[in-house]
Write a protein that binds this DNA or RNA. Sequence first.
DNA 1: TTGTAGGCGTTATCAC
DNA 2: GTGATAACGCCTACAA
Lengths: 347, 347
Amino acid sequence: MKKPVTIHDIAKMAGVSSATVSRVLSNSDYPISAAMREKIQRIAKESNYIPNLFGKQLKTKSSMTIGVIIPSISNPFYSSVILGVEGIARQNQYNVIVCNSLHDAALEEEYLKTIAEKQIKGLIISSIATDKGLLKTLIDTGMKVIAIDQKVDEDGICQIEFDYRKGGYMATRHLLSKGHRRIGYVTLQMDRPSRRSIYQGYLEAVEEAGLEPIMQESAEEDVYNSLYEFNIGKKLAGKLLEMPSPPTAIFACNDVMAFGVINELTSRGLQVPGDMSVIGFDGIEYGQMIHPPLTTIKQPDYEMGKMACKMLMDMLKGDADEPMFDVLLQPKLMERSSVAAMGGEPR
Amino acid sequence: MKKPVTIHDIAKMAGVSSATVSRVLSNSDYPISAAMREKIQRIAKESNYIPNLFGKQLKTKSSMTIGVIIPSISNPFYSSVILGVEGIARQNQYNVIVCNSLHDAALEEEYLKTIAEKQIKGLIISSIATDKGLLKTLIDTGMKVIAIDQKVDEDGICQIEFDYRKGGYMATRHLLSKGHRRIGYVTLQMDRPSRRSIYQGYLEAVEEAGLEPIMQESAEEDVYNSLYEFNIGKKLAGKLLEMPSPPTAIFACNDVMAFGVINELTSRGLQVPGDMSVIGFDGIEYGQMIHPPLTTIKQPDYEMGKMACKMLMDMLKGDADEPMFDVLLQPKLMERSSVAAMGGEPR
DNA sequence: TTGTAGGCGTTATCAC
DNA sequence: GTGATAACGCCTACAA
């Protein structure tokens, strides 16, 4: 395991100075004789030269890397976001480093530190922490930050959000328009802005229609595990069914929860949507694979990633004029087959 | 946006040399008077000192980072692997950088280069490329590599694989044991070792039972998109059904394909498993959420990630004695509800 | 067109 | 215990 070859080694082999080698190998537009250039490139290739980015980055103070902090890639919603981010980053010769905070504020902070130490100047974050202290000082030292999905109320942070409230409103309106009057809402613990907003939308639509909200919130702190969410969906659906006057339609705060709801209903012998309508939220692909295909509210996840990265690139390049505006991505109703119109009188 | 504070700045403020500051801030066990230590730590904190890893890493030649190259995190199987890897890496103070090759050999090579330039000494890879040239030269320069999932036939690479062949065999045997005699197999393009192995297992079991294989392979080059795979599942199931003498059970090369198969059967009015049994492969969580819950072969994905990372850590630490053995993870039958026993005569 | 030399922020090897 | 000082690999004025 011999030690790696450096530009100095190459310089020696080529009988030139390391400056010349550097100029050739970093593709600068510095004038170099064609012969020299070719010779150096040949030697570099033959000796399997691998540039050491530390040296370069220490000197140039630019890592060409952005960071992304999300709760967990195992959530298909976030993995879509990431793929969107990476596509744009790659186009701009940037690398992406992904950090899963796993819904752990301490871990999020640790990653934040690492990112800062790696001299990363751009960050896209879906923050779950409530203490934004560190984040704030990083911004003060020049880090560009884009908050996605979860709102961060700090100066100097661009927001790219979904209009969760409207999404919640739309879902509920859809159920209403199908004649449902008793609409249940099941949700994970409302410890995050996004979840509270969806519920807001639900509430608004229900109250607007002069109806009573029927809500079940999970008491359990959530872990990022789909199966876990699925089971909460089952459980909360059960609670709804055991009410004296159960709803005729159930709105779940995300698709996996909706899968749980449908599963519980089915296993109790109820037909979806015949006996009970179900609508989800997120629009993950698996929604099209289950039976019945899930009617849901689609959040443009991949697009969110692309847009966040585009804005970040802009901020990173034009170091003066930062595009200080927020983006509110619009939800879309995906009408599939898990919602039916109420026939006649409510049971 | 003032420039970041360095150990020299802190040294100046504390009236000491930068060497002392470095010794304190890098937690070395070098003897320093308690007073001095405390003073420096205080100043560092007050001035929001952020160490520059480039400097450190340039000096120490160690990046405390490992790389992971996989086809795509949008595949829940791989995202599980990643989560397993990260857990172990974190325990060892290592960072992980994840690269999605998106089933593109050129991109995989590009990432490989970046990883090398970042002076990363450990790599876990599920390679889709056929030309392992670069990988080989990297190993020669001392990079430790663990191949997961997809076998890489090169010296000096540890393999952590699933026993795909046995998994295929087990699935088929299960169907056989339920009395099925005409068992269809649907698969994505068999351009990868893993897929060929599963088919091998299927073939073996079928031939052992003195039966004819009934196979449908997708002609389309695959993209990493679940919905796409789902649709291929539907399509191939359709082909199977249109045969003069269709099978009574279908084995799909992965769970998402199986979802497609079930969907197609259901939409043609067939009952699963009443009219047709279906078995999948992978054991992703969504399999428990559909109806009927999918019987499948579980691959221990999370464990694979953990094990791969553990082995890598060992190789990275003990630089002499490398644990040169391969691991073959064993599949497990997850019996759920999509397979039924054949009653009486085959239709 | 090429070379020289200094420095990026850190650690490590000496001295004191 | 603490301080100079020399690397680490690369880039980049400035000089030739």
